[in-house]
Design a protein around this nucleic acid. Structure first.
Lengths: 131, 131
DNA sequence: TTCCTTGCAAATCGTTTGCATAATG
DNA sequence: CATTATGCAAACGATTTGCAAGGAA
């Protein structure tokens, strides 16, 4: 891979992601930075998101809703996606990490990792549907 | 939902899926049925795959490679996706189901289910890269 | 001056949809 | 006859890419 050079846009994208605890899409990031970079283009956002996740500075989340979400929190953790409002929330699942660490399957390939996420109805949507 | 009417195409799509243990994409299914239905259209395949997965007769797999895969085996099981060749294989993980059944998180929403899959290098690709 | 990055627009690709016609119940 | 399904082609939406110009090392 070629050497990276500094870019204000990339810096801003990373900073934007670190500040938020939701898990914005490329489009949301783009819109959120338009005031700072009036000529910003979606392509630039996508390119930098790819670069940043290649270097491991951010995470790309593919949670089956057809859109990529991005996470500035690179500490390992799990996610919950609300089927109603689409919101994505961090979730702690006690013992799951150690389960995966200790499990040994009969699989004859090299397991590099796993993806796990949960889905259902988030607290806010639950509240609304009971009214 | 409206009542379903029989269709030879839908029947063939389901049968095609039941017969295979790989996890074909819509396109592969389409190509595989072209000899039987020379005028078959991709749209019909997609529509029926959606119908069949809505009724639970098949499963739609979204494993982060950007393409939907379909599984005629509706018994709960896990999957492994090879990062090299894209192949998707069934995987058994002892104790994982019971872990999820017994776990109770502090999450204040309604958890309806979870998605878990594994990734890495499949046996065949491992063999090739060692040569 | 080298080569990475940007903005812009066009291209890609998987999937969905509108419509007139055919098949099912 | 009422309604669902089909084939075809066009539309869609998210993401990627080619290119000429701008910025970093």
């Amino acid at each position: 891979m070629a050497a990276l050079k500094y870019s204000r846009q990339r810096e801003a994208i990373k900073e934007f992601l670190m500040k938020r605890k939701d898990h914005p899409t490329a489009d949301v990031i783009y819109l959120g930075l338009l005031d700072k970079f009036p000529n910003l283009s979606l392509g630039t956002v996508y390119r930098n998101l790819t670069l940043l996740s290649d270097t491991g500075e951010i995470n790309r989340l593919r949670l089956g809703d057809g859109v990529d979400h991005f996470d500035g929190n690179t500490m390992p953790h799990y996610h919950f996606i609300c089927e109603k409002c689409g919101r994505i929330m961090d979730m702690e699942v006690e013992g799951l990490d150690s389960f995966f660490d200790s499990t040994n399957s009969h699989f004859h390939g090299k397991i590099k990792g796993h993806v796990t996420y949960f889905y259902g109805e988030c607290p806010d949507c639950l509240k609304d549907s009971c009214s």
